[in-house]
């Protein structure tokens, strides 16, 4: 069982430079290749620029989440503006909740991304479920 004392712990990404190549690699991977006049990242690309915050949580040896038995349960995003090449985005993730029910454990992770001018770009919340065998 993950210790509840880790609620409130935060993780910050290095500034992520959004490039046209990175957006196109993502679009090609998911098969979302419709052309728009302006290259704007698909909304779920928030998972790419924020990914290092998730990675830091999953690999935090103190918190020690059982990642082999971790599944993604729910996800939400809110967007303040579109993301384009040239954006420099920094994401902060925060462990917002840890709870258990039976052999299942629930970890809520909230994220907030800001641009180089410190203006909000997007927020996200992930629910991870760990099933102890």
């Amino acid at each position: 069982m993950t210790e509840t004392r880790f609620v409130g712990r935060t993780y910050e990404t290095e500034p992520f430079e959004v490039t046209a190549e990175s957006i196109r690699a993502y679009m090609n991977a998911v098969g979302d290749t419709r052309v728009e006049p302006d290259l704007v990242a698909p909304p779920t690309y928030a998972m790419v620029y924020g990914f290092d915050a998730y990675w830091q949580l999953w690999s935090d040896k103190e918190v020690a989440l059982d990642t082999a038995h971790l599944v993604h349960g729910e996800q939400s995003f809110t967007y303040h503006r579109p993301v384009r090449p040239g954006d420099l985005l920094k994401t902060t993730g925060r462990i917002a909740g840890i709870s258990a029910r039976g052999n299942m454990e629930f970890v809520t992770f909230d994220l907030s991304a800001k641009d180089a001018g410190d203006q909000p770009v997007s927020e996200a919340s992930a629910l991870f479920i760990i099933r102890t065998p």
């Binding site: 599944v71 349960g73 996800q75 939400s76 967007y79």
Partner: peptide, 16 residues
């Protein structure tokens, strides 16, 4: 695809 715009989305959520 339906909207014809990626920048118009203000929120997205769901359960796996």
């Amino acid at each position: 695809d339906w909207l014809g715009s990626r920048g118009a989305v203000r929120s997205l959520q769901g359960r796996f």
